[in-house]
Simulated scan of single mutants.
Amino acid sequence: YYKSNNNGWLYKANVSWKPLQNLLLYGQVATGYRPGGVNQVLGLAQALAYAPDKTTTYEGGLKTTLADGAFTFNLSGYITDWKDMQVSINSGSFLYLGNAGAARIRGIEAETVISPIAGLTFNINFVLTDAKLTQDQVPDNVTPSATTARAGDKIPFIAPQTVGVAGQYDWAIGESGKLRALLRGDLSYVGKSYADFRPNAIGYRQVGDYTLANLRAGIHTERYGVYVFVNNLFDTIARVAAGNTLGGTTETVTTVPPRTIGINLTGSF
Results as ranks from 00 to 15, higher is better:
residue 128 L to F: 05
residue 198 R to H: 07
residue 75 L to C: 03
residue 12 K to D: 01
residue 1 Y to G: 14
residue 116 P to C: 08
residue 90 N to V: 04
residue 55 T to L: 15
residue 47 A to E: 10
residue 166 A to D: 09
residue 142 V to Y: 02
residue 230 V to Y: 12
residue 208 G to D: 03
residue 41 V to S: 03
residue 53 D to I: 00
residue 80 T to S: 14
residue 81 D to K: 13
residue 43 G to E: 05
residue 2 Y to R: 15
residue 163 V to F: 09
residue 124 I to K: 01
residue 21 Q to S: 11
residue 112 T to N: 10
residue 228 V to Q: 10
residue 48 L to N: 13
residue 173 I to D: 00
residue 163 V to K: 10
residue 37 G to P: 06
residue 262 G to V: 04
residue 27 G to W: 00
residue 140 D to H: 06
residue 69 G to H: 02
residue 129 T to E: 01
residue 53 D to Y: 03
residue 68 D to S: 14
residue 212 L to Q: 07
residue 95 L to E: 00
residue 124 I to T: 01
residue 23 L to E: 07
residue 249 T to D: 12
residue 68 D to Y: 06
residue 2 Y to C: 10
residue 58 Y to N: 10
residue 196 D to I: 05
residue 227 Y to E: 13
residue 198 R to Y: 11
residue 95 L to G: 00
residue 151 A to E: 10
residue 88 S to I: 06
residue 198 R to T: 11
residue 17 W to V: 09
residue 209 D to S: 15
residue 103 A to Q: 13
residue 70 A to N: 09
residue 33 Y to W: 01
residue 234 F to M: 11
residue 78 Y to V: 00
residue 166 A to E: 11
residue 219 I to F: 12
residue 33 Y to C: 00
residue 249 T to M: 08
residue 261 I to E: 02
residue 262 G to R: 04
residue 85 M to T: 05
residue 1 Y to L: 13
residue 120 L to I: 04
residue 50 Y to T: 04
residue 109 E to P: 12
residue 162 T to F: 05
residue 137 Q to R: 07
residue 135 Q to K: 12
